[in-house]
């Protein structure tokens, strides 16, 4: 279990990013939301990387606020930036880390090689990390995070910069990990909500504004998504999306507008509907 209880979190004193924030994760979940709302900060807080944290942080039943040396025993973290040593090879890097986790040389090597193969890094094992492409660096860092036998895997934008096939590889790996431990993932890719098949949390304006499955999220937009012919540019709607044929657009409304045709929502429509209606609530106040 991961728990943020009545937390006030910020990088500067008295400038909170999240205020009196509470969230409990018993099982794997995926967090999404606009940029700058504090998604990455939530993960970093648990790792003890945020200077101003008031309230309770718990991993299992253990209080870890102010005790990063404790939380880091139980959590493995993939940061959004590719922070890697540049002068060692992929194999050295992965094997050394597995050794630090207490494995013997032979099993550290065996596990490192297996994980590298799984993430399509087998051909670059003897290459120094400096000379890897951005996508390979990302997968190297992920391999290291997954190799650590921690209770929870904290993953910040795992697929950033990866091509479509590697996105799929990484997502399949993380999904497989949810069988044996908790995976808490932050993402900006709406496709991943349905693919990950776990609890979806939308963070916005300092609150969790949606908590449920991706199917629940999709269903919140049912009856609110319409297709409409394009008759003026820019279209007079708060939020709309182009459609590929360039003669019609997709619009989001509370009730059916004139001349529109309702369409079945997708998961991403649910996300946009939640964001839109939350913004609307602020204006009503």
């Amino acid at each position: 279990m991961l728990e943020w209880s009545q937390c006030t979190i910020g990088y500067r004193e008295n400038v909170p990013i999240l205020d009196q924030f509470s969230l409990t994760c018993d099982d794997s979940a995926i967090i999404v939301g606009p940029s700058g709302v504090g998604k990455s900060t939530l993960l970093a807080t648990m790792m003890g990387l945020v200077p101003y944290v008031k309230g309770h942080l718990r991993v299992g039943q253990r209080e870890v606020n102010g005790l990063p040396q404790i939380s880091r025993q139980y959590l493995s973290y993939l940061p959004a930036a590719n922070l890697l040593p540049l002068d060692v090879t992929v194999e050295e890097y992965l094997t050394e880390l597995a050794r630090i986790d207490g494995l013997s040389w032979s099993s550290a090597r065996r596990q490192a090689l297996a994980m590298a193969a799984r993430l399509h890094l087998a051909e670059v094992l003897t290459r120094r990390i400096r000379w890897l492409s951005g996508g390979m660096k990302r997968r190297t860092l992920l391999a290291a995070a997954v190799l650590k036998p921690a209770e929870w895997l904290m993953v910040d934008q795992a697929t950033a910069g990866l091509d479509p096939e590697e996105q799929r590889t990484v997502l399949d790996l993380l999904q497989a990990e949810t069988q044996s431990r908790g995976v808490l993932m932050v993402t900006q890719e709406l496709d991943e909500l349905a693919q990950f098949q776990k609890r979806v949390l939308i963070l916005m304006d300092g609150n969790i504004i949606f908590d449920g499955s991706s199917e629940d999220l999709r269903d919140t937009a049912r009856g609110h998504v319409f297709q409409r012919a394009l008759d003026s540019t820019p279209p007079p709607f708060d939020f709309w999306q182009p459609l590929p044929n360039h003669t019609a657009i997709k619009v989001y409304q509370h009730s059916i507008p004139k001349g529109c045709q309702a369409i079945a929502p997708e998961v991403e429509d649910g996300y946009f509907w939640q964001i839109m209606t939350t913004k609307g609530r602020d204006h009503d106040d």
Binding site: Q188, W240, Q241
Partner: peptide, 13 residues
């Protein structure tokens, strides 16, 4: 790349 979902839609808009 590196945009959030809403910013991404705004680009296409």
């Amino acid at each position: 790349a590196s945009l959030d979902p809403t910013q991404r839609v705004e680009f296409w808009q």
